[in-house]
């Protein structure tokens, strides 16, 4: 894998984890990270919509299933790195923090800290949340009893 691919893959993973976390949690971990480098806001947090596409029978041609709200923001560090934030729902502060983290993630000196102190805990929380939900569902899985047929053959 080239360095560019690896960098893109990391951004992709971070942005996905950060977008799916709760706005409160992202804000808390951002605070704990300590003083962030200075940045200017290129695009003020803006609330808008995306059209969610579905597929006929789950796997066929796509159709417009309905919209959802999204908030986006963009920042630039004084050192030049550009950061983008897109988060589902209406969360202006979260979108700006995500954009700042995306920009900082492009600085090698920040990568480890953000990975360990922000992204990894949020990813673990998301996994735990999914597991909790799946484990309650698993308890409702049907076990069919098989009935032995009368002997006779």
């Amino acid at each position: 894998m080239t360095q560019i691919d690896a960098a893109q893959e990391r951004r992709q993973r971070w942005l996905s984890v950060l977008a799916q976390a709760s706005a409160e949690q992202v804000a808390t971990l951002w605070q704990r990270l300590g003083p962030a480098p200075a940045y200017s806001v290129l695009r003020q947090p803006e609330i808008g919509l995306v059209m969610v596409q579905g597929r006929i029978s789950g796997s066929g041609a796509s159709f417009a299933a309905g919209e959802m709200t999204v908030t986006r923001a963009a920042v630039r560090l004084t050192t030049g790195q550009l950061g983008i934030g897109y988060v589902g729902g209406r969360h202006p502060r979260q979108a700006e923090i995500v954009a700042a983290l995306d920009a900082m993630g492009q600085m090698p000196e920040w990568q480890r800290r953000i990975e360990d102190q922000v992204v990894a805990p949020l990813a673990a929380d998301a996994d735990a949340r999914r597991r909790r939900r799946a484990s309650k569902a698993a308890a409702t899985k049907v076990d069919f009893f098989t009935v032995a047929r009368e002997a006779g053959t």
Binding site: L49, V50, M51, Q53, R55
Partner: peptide, 23 residues
């Protein structure tokens, strides 16, 4: 309310085979 918001674009089609199914 939705008519007051800008449209950022279309998502990729959702993949329901990847669902964390509750039912």
């Amino acid at each position: 309310y939705r008519t007051t918001l800008p449209r950022f674009g279309d998502t990729l089609p959702i993949d329901t085979a990847r669902m964390v199914a509750e039912r």
